[in-house]
């Protein structure tokens, strides 16, 4: 057992994946000697060499496009996009090529690749460094989109994602990089009986009976804090950590909402056309007759991510979540 930050946990997961499979190659700006701007790849180039931990030229489409070519030859590239706001130059390659190649080749070409993106706000960064572009990717069939919320999941999910045959967008909640947890490194994650079969399952992070909070990535912790505060007010909130946005583990959410009859979805991304809208529509369809209130959403707003000095007003926090919980309870 070791107590590690999420950044270190991902680092250890990457190291394990590279030891497990010599076809795993990491590519990303400054991930070599520097260890990445968040130090997630710290020490890996020294250990595995610059043919497996590659500092490519500064060109995101080039990085993803060459990773596609490597994957076509059976390699397993793990790409790091430095920040969420820098993924758009690669968006064409991701949507037109990464997502579609298995389909158009009728399964002849498997692109087993992971695109890691530190995402979300809350760290006081300048513009283009705090965005939540997940809906752009969940709307693109052919991609799987997942996001860990804590160091243990980050450690396990990165290894499972790398072993998976489909291309996966791996969204890392950058504001949680420094959260710590105990990591059990004595068991090989991939040798566990389930392999990566549980990778896309949601998790009940806290049980409750009055309202279901659904979140993923950085907002899971915020929801858990809201649930703890609500307990003092006599409200029992269930918190679901989705872990995977596509596939979306609807069964776990339906089970919870069938119990509580109320649901609030929380994410940093803007509400309109967001992941929360899709979840709301699907849960309404499945749980219409047992629901006591419409699905409510707490989210960012329909604007470019604002200047960092006011991001506290943009990002969902404990108070805004509990405000929506109260509204759900009023129905």
């Amino acid at each position: 057992m070791a107590t590690l930050t999420m950044a270190k946990a991902i680092n250890m997961g990457l190291r394990n994946a590279m030891k497990r499979d010599e076809k795993v190659v990491l590519m990303g700006e400054d991930i070599g000697k520097l260890g990445g701007v968040f130090r997630v790849t710290d020490g890996l180039q020294a250990e595995f060499g610059d043919m497996r931990v590659v500092d490519p030229p500064l060109a995101e489409s080039g990085i993803v496009g060459t990773a596609v070519g490597m994957a076509m030859r059976g390699w397993r590239p793990v790409v790091e996009i430095q920040f969420d706001g820098f993924v758009y130059p690669a968006f064409d390659q991701i949507v037109s090529q990464v997502a579609k190649h298995h389909y158009r080749s009728a399964g002849k070409t498997t692109l087993s690749m992971v695109i890691r993106i530190p995402f979300g706000g809350g760290i006081g960064a300048i513009e283009h460094h705090s965005e939540s572009p997940e809906a752009l990717f969940t709307h693109t069939a052919g991609l799987r989109v997942i996001s860990p919320a804590n160091p243990v999941d980050a450690y396990e999910m990165i290894q499972q994602a790398i072993a998976h045959p489909d291309p996966i967008i791996f969204l890392e909640p950058k504001r949680r990089y420094w959260d710590k947890a105990e990591i059990d490194d004595s068991v090989d994650v991939m040798n566990k009986a389930e392999g990566y079969s549980r990778l896309f399952d949601a998790r009940v992070a806290r049980e409750g009976s009055d309202v279901t909070l659904v979140a993923y990535g950085p907002m899971v912790k915020t929801c858990l804090e809201a649930a703890a505060a609500a307990e003092g007010e006599g409200l029992s909130l269930e918190v679901i950590d989705l872990r995977s946005l596509t596939p979306f583990d609807i069964d776990t959410v339906v089970k919870s909402v069938t119990k509580t009859g109320r649901m609030v979805v929380v994410h940093e991304a803007p509400q309109f056309g967001g992941v929360g809208a899709e979840i709301a529509a699907r849960i309404t369809e499945k749980c219409f007759w047992t629901m006591q209130a419409p699905v409510l959403r707490v989210s960012g707003m329909y604007m470019p991510y604002p200047a960092a000095r006011v991001e506290h007003a943009y990002l969902p926090d404990l108070d805004r979540i509990l405000d929506s919980v109260d509204k759900a309870m009023e129905y």
Binding site: G65, M72, S96
Partner: peptide, 13 residues
């Protein structure tokens, strides 16, 4: 798009 795939394929080679 394909030019980058060619380069990646060659890099893997």
């Amino acid at each position: 798009n394909q030019c980058l795939h060619a380069v990646g394929y060659a890099m893997a080679g």
